[in-house]
């Protein structure tokens, strides 16, 4: 759900370059610490998990102005380390097709990577006791953290109004105002212009965010439940527990 769609040439170098540096540092350690045997076994399924994420992230949900990412699901199925690599690959492929800029790939990997890591780690700790509740809590917390990161990154540079779901917002012409005054007014104005179903303003924004998180969580829980019924060995091998 959390994916920065900013095109190239908008975010300055001092923001996107550190994103790439941190991402490549993490990738370096993940690759260094993965054994060849482990890579050999997981690699074919890693490609499939990445393709599923790619499909999930490129199809907008018509009923809510967001898209699902299946990032937590990927983290649960292949483990957080390999899933981080998958997130980088998916972000890069999406950027090649104009879905977010090439310069934003590092930042996007960190945002979605945090979702993957937190989701998989919480699942490992919580799903032992109750699979459904564990998956639910892990997904919701992971989504909230990654969305906060996304809001922080975009909001710091461009103002928090730019983080709002774009499909639901309409901008009006603006007059010249001093910067701080303008930012506050811009945010208030942008929120008031959000319309979703019969609601508008803050209520519509909260409904969109809650519905987005709810839908991604519901899909993740249903898939994990189905998966656990049919092939429990897959999840147990990755997370090292039996129910």
């Amino acid at each position: 759900m959390s994916h920065i769609h900013i095109p190239d040439g908008i975010i300055p170098l001092y923001i996107w370059l550190p994103g790439y540096i941190v991402t490549f540092t993490i990738i370096y350690f993940v690759v260094k610490r993965s054994s060849n045997e482990q890579i050999k076994r997981v690699l074919p399924f890693t490609g499939i998990a990445a393709a599923l994420m790619l499909i999930g992230m490129s199809v907008p949900l018509i009923i809510i102005p967001v898209h699902i990412s299946l990032a937590v699901l990927t983290g649960i199925l292949i483990g957080p380390k390999m899933a981080f690599l998958v997130v980088f690959v998916v972000s890069m492929i999406l950027a090649m097709f104009g879905h977010g800029g090439i310069t934003i790939v590092g930042l996007n990997t960190l945002v979605i990577g945090s979702e993957v890591f937190i989701g998989a780690m919480l699942f490992k700790g919580l799903a032992k006791k109750n699979l459904i509740i564990g998956t639910c809590v892990a997904t919701v917390i992971a989504l909230i953290v990654s969305m906060s990161m996304m809001v922080g990154i975009i909001g710091t540079y461009a103002g928090f109004a730019e983080v709002l779901p774009h499909e639901a917002t309409e901008h009006a012409d603006e007059e010249h105002l001093d910067e701080e005054e303008h930012d506050d007014l811009h945010l208030t104005e942008a929120i008031s212009e959000i319309n979703y179903l019969a609601f508008s303003g803050w209520v519509a924004l909260i409904i969109i965010v809650v519905a987005g998180i709810g839908l991604e969580t519901l899909i993740t829980v249903l898939i994990i439940r189905y998966f656990y019924k049919v092939r429990p060995d897959l999840i147990e091998t990755v997370h090292g527990f039996t129910m």
Binding site: Y28, L43, G47, I48, A50, A51, I55, L85, V86, F88
Partner: peptide, 23 residues
């Protein structure tokens, strides 16, 4: 880039078409 990342790129691209067909 590390060879592992390039391999994931190739596997993803190949899997995308297979999965899209299955869907």
């Amino acid at each position: 880039m590390p060879g592992l990342i390039v391999d994931i790129f190739l596997m993803t691209y190949r899997s995308f078409f297979i999965i899209a067909d299955k869907v």
